[in-house]
Design a protein around this nucleic acid. Structure first.
Lengths: 344, 344
DNA sequence: TTGTACGCGTTATCAG
DNA sequence: CTGATAACGCGTACAA
């Protein structure tokens, strides 16, 4: 090995000039031999490869980026003001799915967590100034300028979940939340429950809006009252508190559709603390089918949503976009499915 | 705004040359005015700032990296062959902690999940070829060449958890797993339990090794038998299976120290499936105090480990290292604390 | 097929 | 304080 050693003990990487010199060719030929190897004679190519091996040459990614105007990395943006972003397994699945999509590509995953409210501008700037080639964005709040600015900047991006306040050209993957919520509620109705409440998500998020609307549709169709509604913030604690409010305002409740498993787990805990039996007294139905659904007692019946697959698909679409492939669909919808356990 | 527009509709960013031209100064002066502003006359500086504002100039990060030999990003490496890396809340907390540490710095977080076994070489190459300025590495397996190669490459890095097979100069943050496990086991002994088993983690991971050794120390000191040992893989399922093996081999068991909450939750589930009462028949003690600890029935008594804080500290140390600050400590130990709930 | 030469956008050096 | 000019390392028209 002829690796040089700098003062700090840090290896100093060989450049393509040294490779070219050692191989007895020009830098251009060395470069061609390294990238693809087209238009290079076999002997030149062999010489370059030998030199590369001997020197342990690796192209400097930064220099390459400067020349190609590509960074080779994409961002996964999680715009959550919440301090505890990742305690929500939804994000874990999202990250996992993206990582899987990028696994066999030459794209690197850069994680962007935009916790603070004012950060969307900083995030947008980061994304639109050449740090990354594209972005996947999850979790959308209305009035968050992030999404629109991103789309308008022209940066290739794909959303997980239908984005709000965005040009219709924005690509996204999603489940039909409205329909899924409807199915869930109909299941509760089919169980013979008639006093069915709901714990919805934040009023400024598309998934929450759509699920509440699905619940309303089913309740309306069955001629049932739609007054037992409480909003919460997609957390366990929030779900518990909402359940408390709900049961106190409507003591005759016999079922509740909750817009996420995390909140449902809080709701189940609250009910059990109050000595209310699940599902005998009150049936509880969740959404997501994340790990929590099986750890509660009783285990949650829920609408299963293939979050990881959705994130993977988003990553693949972005990859295709960056590869210059034509992607026809604007939106890709994933099916949700009824997962029946003990709670409803 | 004088932003040009390329054919694809993607804005073409202004360069520092345009700024310099508009401000009537040289590129060098413009650069100085933009970075810090030292050694620049007030009027030149004002002219440059005006030009920057008018053009909406943002320095090209790639070009800057090439010149400064710094990327402005650091990696968080999760070397988990497991397909379900992020279903483990341990990693969620780690990511969260790192993100928090980097929140108010100019460093970007790059997430590296090295799932496949053979990937450590690819990961090492990525890390040592200038993609990032430094790395924080979590979850260490013996015989994984990753850690040693990383340290030997001279890349600034900090480990979360004591790394194995690595030069003694490697920096890390950790809890005293040995001592913590000892305390936990002593608690079980103090409860009057005498037939205490343990579900340990993988034999090739430092945290697992240390916790098992702590259990042994406490058992030995109390003169109790150390034969009820089963290994598992830090997953819920693995914990359940290990519990099954343990209880069948040792039906007289009256307590078990489990090396992680995730495994403990599996163990509790398995016991409950078998009609074994927790803690009346068998007390269960966990480790980590992650969210799962409170969702099981009964809730887990556990050794609390401030994982997020540890990750934050690791990120801060790395940041200090990159800023050229002298960091004295090689290892930073965090205290674990006894968290008593219903299971023991 | 090969080499020359330029461009990528900044920062660093070093005279002035 | 300022301005040429040289790195930084690589890709790639263009000409040979």
């Amino acid at each position: 090995m002829t690796l040089g050693v700098a003062s700090a003990g840090r290896r100093v990487a060989p450049t393509i000039r040294q490779v070219a010199a050692l191989a007895g060719v020009s830098r251009a030929t060395a470069s061609r031999a390294i990238n693809g190897g087209h238009l290079v004679s076999p002997q030149a190519r062999a010489a370059v490869e030998a030199a590369v091996a001997e020197l342990g040459f690796t192209p400097n990614p930064v220099a390459r980026s400067l020349a190609t105007r590509r960074t080779g990395s994409v961002a996964l943006v999680l715009p959550e003001p919440n301090t505890r972003v990742l305690t929500d397994p939804f994000f874990a699945s999202t990250i996992n799915g993206m990582a899987r999509a990028l696994e066999h590509t030459d794209l690197q995953l850069v994680l962007l967590i935009a916790r603070q409210d004012g950060w969307s501008t900083r995030t947008v700037r980061y994304l639109t100034t050449g740090h990354v080639d594209g972005a996947v964005v999850a979790s959308h709040h209305r009035d968050d300028r992030l999404n629109r600015e991103l789309v308008e900047s022209g940066l290739p991006c794909v959303f997980i979940g239908r984005p709000l306040d965005v040009p219709a050209t924005a690509r996204y993957v999603d489940t039909d939340n409205d329909h899924a919520a409807q199915l869930a509620t109909e299941h509760l109705i089919g169980l013979g429950r008639t006093r069915i409440g709901t714990i919805a998500g934040p009023a400024d998020m598309s998934a929450a809006i759509d699920r509440l609307s699905g619940w309303r549709a089913a309740m309306g169709a069955a001629g049932l009252a739609q007054d037992a509604v409480e909003l919460a913030d997609f957390t366990v604690e929030g779900g518990g508190a909402a359940m408390a409010r709900l049961i106190e305002a409507h003591p005759d409740l016999d079922a509740v559709f909750v817009a996420s498993d995390l909140m449902a787990s809080g709701a189940v805990g609250e009910l059990s603390d109050r000595g209310v039996r699940v599902p005998e007294d009150v049936a509880v139905f969740g959404f997501d089918d994340l790990g929590v659904a099986t750890t509660t007692t009783p285990a949650l019946s829920t609408m299963g949503q293939p979050i990881e697959d959705m994130a993977t698909r988003a990553g693949q679409i972005l990859h295709a976009l960056l590869a210059g492939e034509e992607v026809e669909e604007i939106s890709v919808m994933f099916p949700a499915r009824l997962v029946l356990r003990e709670s409803a």
